[in-house]
Amino acid sequence: MGPVGGVFDGLLALVLLVLSIRLLFVSSLFHAVVLFIALGLLMGLTWVRLQAPDVALAEAAIGAALTGVLFIDLLYKLTHRNNIRSSVSERLIYEQTMPRRWLTACLSALVCIALLAPLLMVAAQSPTTGAGLTPAVSAAMAATGVTHEVTAVLLNFRSFDTLLELTVLFVAVLAALTLRVMDTSSLPTAIPKPPDPLMDGLWRLLLPLLVAVSGYLLWLGSFTSGGAFQSGIVMAATIILLSLTGQRTLELLPPLVWRALLVVGLLNFIVVGAAMLMLEGAFLQYPQGWAGGLILLLEVTASLTIATALVTLVLGLSVPAMFKRYPDPR
């Protein structure tokens, strides 16, 4: 790594720390969101420095980009709700009464310490030298059906974890749709709607490229950094970009297709897992020689579901057409 790398890493760690502290104490929600996005990008860079490009891609795309879009959109809706100008609404949310603020701070501190203690214990116990699990993974690579270690871990050795991750995403989407109590028709979206020649040109140029990148990332997953999550995120970003430039996206899908896309990844995992339980005697235990094909199948459907779930999380609140069959009770 050398001294230059060391200095760079030190600076990076310092900036991460300073950004986190600034983020907690900055007084405007908008500044906090901007700092959060910057923090996500620098976290991505940190993962690159730790030689984990898979995590870096996911962190930059979800942690910075998609969460950033969600936050900015939410902020816009909060501040423009019922035409209340930004400062008033923002203050309402942010300035709580003093004792309540202190109570919140103390509770957060307690939770943080409670979480930090076991983390430090684990860190103290983990070996600082040696290769960890790398030799074990490398030794078993031949049977996994893929040649990239990260994909082997995610979809073969620990595919159960990926199943649970998809479940978490699914539950998050369900929760977001359930909490949709706002009257969406009165809410403006952050980007102006009338078609714009420049935005039109932008999506026309970017759409084929982004679709290609998404497919490429999915294909890359079997032998190098990439895979279902990264591919799904790029696809989701593409659809969100389209819809931000005024194109109709999710509304075009029949509700049934949209729902099917939302569950197909998770369902496929469960079906494959159950089938393997019957054939091989263990949940998600792939038979010899079948691993590669099954992993590809799981990855394709997982990628579709991840893309649909993320798009729904971002656009769900602003696409009333999707919920035509469930009118607002009010």
């Binding site: 980007i191 420049l198 935005m199 932008l202 140029l205 970017l206 490229l209």
Partner: peptide, 17 residues
């Protein structure tokens, strides 16, 4: 080169917005 071209495109459009 593709990265640079995409960056040019994104940068110009975001500046416009």
């Amino acid at each position: 080169i593709l990265i640079w071209l995409v960056m040019l495109l994104a940068s110009a459009n975001i500046s416009y917005l």
